[in-house]
């Protein structure tokens, strides 16, 4: 770099990294708070870095609260939603991309329409439906409710991924005598795999983070996921356990952190394929 470029680069770098740090400061603060001992937490003025690092809040969270139970519910809930949505979505998207039948284009736009529907409209009838069918207050009821936003999104993503796969290979397999489904499994699926993983990652995150349906549809500890669970567990009208809450918040973000570290590329790819390009 020339001298002039250096002089220009310094303020740009400083500004960019200052903004990045400010933006992620709440998350750094969350981690710092979760490892501070209780007496340091309520010190005025607050210490920026913990003077003594402790994991007692994590220990208390895991041993003395139903945190792990809620965590497990969230794992089951998000995994089932992801699997269901992927199976149905992959087949549906393949159909929307490669087959021609009447109403196909309209169907694709309808998928996008349903994706934009507010859950506040759907939640009350869904609540009544779950009561009627007799699966209210269960993880299954949440899986069903989550398909309302996860399936349209997955379909839309998978559709744009599959549209990018060249038809030639598939045609070649068909010429060689493969059946349509055989060609789908041997040729299309492997090529669509990155897109499928992207979709899975996205679906898992939105299901993991979902709060509104969980709030309305599940009112029992036997099925409560983490998002609503941490509140019933740690926030009462008299007392908010901040140290435990911050530890819970960190633990709750673990799957996300894992995805960020190992599957970052799939996340960005999913972004590019979602409904942003007009």
């Amino acid at each position: 770099m020339t001298r002039r470029a250096w002089v220009r680069a310094i303020p740009v770098n400083a500004a960019a990294w200052l903004i990045v740090l400010i933006v992620i400061f709440p998350l750094i603060w969350m981690i710092l708070t979760s490892v501070k001992p209780q007496d340091e937490l309520i010190r005025i003025p607050p210490t920026l870095l913990p003077q003594n690092v402790t994991f007692e809040h994590y220990q208390e969270l895991l041993e003395d609260t139903p945190f792990l139970k809620y965590f497990w519910h969230s794992v089951v809930l998000s995994t089932s939603t992801t699997l269901l949505v992927l199976v149905v979505g992959v087949l549906g998207a393949y159909s929307l991309v490669r087959f021609s039948y009447r109403g196909r284009e309209k169907l694709a736009l309808l998928v996008l329409f349903t994706y934009l529907l507010p859950s506040a409209v759907l939640v009350l009838p869904l609540y009544l439906l779950m009561v009627k069918v007799g699966i209210a207050n269960s993880i299954a009821s949440l899986v069903i409710a989550y398909t309302t936003f996860a399936l349209p999104y997955a379909l839309w993503l998978l559709r744009s991924f599959m549209a990018g796969i060249p038809e030639d290979l598939e045609s070649a397999a068909l010429v060689d005598g493969a059946s349509r489904l055989g060609a789908f499994i041997d040729v299309v699926l492997p090529q669509a795999l990155p897109g499928i993983i992207s979709t899975a990652v996205f679906t898992f995150i939105v299901a993991w983070n979902e709060y509104f349906y969980a709030l309305v549809l599940v009112n029992t500890d036997a099925a409560r996921p983490l998002t609503t669970g941490v509140f019933t567990m740690l926030v009462t009208s008299f007392n908010i356990e901040w140290s435990l809450l911050m530890a819970a918040a960190v633990m709750m973000s673990l799957p996300l952190i894992v995805i960020f570290v190992f599957l970052q590329g799939f996340l960005t790819r999913g972004f590019a394929a979602s409904g942003v390009k007009g």
Binding site: A16, W17, V20, V23, I24, P26, L27, W29, M30, T33, I205, W208, N209, Y211, L226, T227, V230, F231, W242, L245, M246, A248, A249, M252, S253, L256, F260, Q264, L267
Partner: peptide
């Protein structure tokens, strides 16, 4: 920097609200 900036968007609203309220 590009991946760090994405964090608020993907973190659960519950987590975000807890931290901000703190």
């Amino acid at each position: 920097a590009r991946s760090l900036i994405l964090f608020p968007y993907f973190v659960s609203t519950v987590v975000a609200v807890l931290v901000w309220r703190w």
